[in-house]
Design a protein around this nucleic acid. Structure first.
Length: 227
DNA sequence: GTCCAGGGCCTAC
DNA sequence: GTAGGCCATGGA
């Protein structure tokens, strides 16, 4: 089968179905970065509460976050869950931004993407998805973001294993698509939109369930003629 | 009451 | 190298 053609076709179907998603939902690159940490394994609604809580006590900048005592920071982001861990992760990340780049995102973008990604992954609490979300949505670098939704959908489409590793799934996209920041941005957001609305975690047993149809059978039927 | 959410880290085997 | 436990809140 032609993987590249299938990936393009799926993107076109999702885009035609949902339209542009205008991600990341944040006002500034710093807010994107903080949100990327706060959203780890957490419902986005709770992340919004945490961001609002943080904004209510301090400016959403590295210096602002670091100006808060531990307890105040934890309390501000409490609704996002894992608040002790995430407070520490935010502090480590903000300290890195200030020490290494003087808090200037433009300076970060001068570093080769691969090198920058390794730097982020070396920080405690920044794994591949969080790092790539920061690179794509805050730094506008052409890095494809993979998450649990991506694996759920593309495993059901037969394009990856259901227990596929992060780097392997990312390579599926980056080896078969042009490095287009805007398209990578929309593609990931569209996957999240589609899976949230259509793909339950546990697939229904019945073969004619509409949710399952939209999740896998429908998309599969749309691309079958291309394989 | 149970499941789930835009992960990551640590430990045990 | 990988399965399992842990971190925590809030909505469906």
């Amino acid at each position: 089968m032609n993987t590249s053609l299938s990936l393009h076709k799926i993107y076109n179907i999702l885009y035609a179905s949902y339209g542009p998603q205008s991600w990341w939902p944040a006002d500034t690159p710093f807010e994107v970065m903080f949100g990327a940490i706060l959203t780890q394994n957490t419902n986005w609604t709770n992340v919004e509460r945490a961001v609002a809580g943080l904004r209510s006590v301090v400016s959403l900048t590295p210096a602002g976050v670091l100006s808060l005592p531990d307890a105040k920071l934890q309390e501000a982001i409490r609704p996002s869950g894992y608040f002790r861990q995430k407070a520490a992760r935010l502090q480590i990340f903000c300290r890195y931004l200030l020490d290494k780049y003087d808090g200037q995102i433009e300076y970060m973008k001068g570093v080769p993407t691969r090198e920058l990604r390794h730097e982020l992954l070396d920080l405690a609490g920044i794994g591949p998805e969080t790092a790539d979300s920061i690179l794509l949505y805050a730094c506008a670098l052409p890095v494809f973001v993979v998450d649990a939704y991506t694996v759920r959908l593309f495993a059901r489409l037969g394009l990856c294993e259901d227990n596929a590793k992060y780097d392997k799934v990312q390579a599926l996209f980056m080896d078969n698509l042009d490095p287009d920041v805007q398209m990578f941005n929309e593609y990931h957001a569209l996957i999240v939109r589609h899976v949230k609305e259509r793909c339950r975690k546990r697939e229904p047993k019945c073969g004619d369930c509409k949710i399952r149809d939209m999740c896998a059978f429908y998309l599969r039927s749309q691309i079958s003629d291309l394989r």
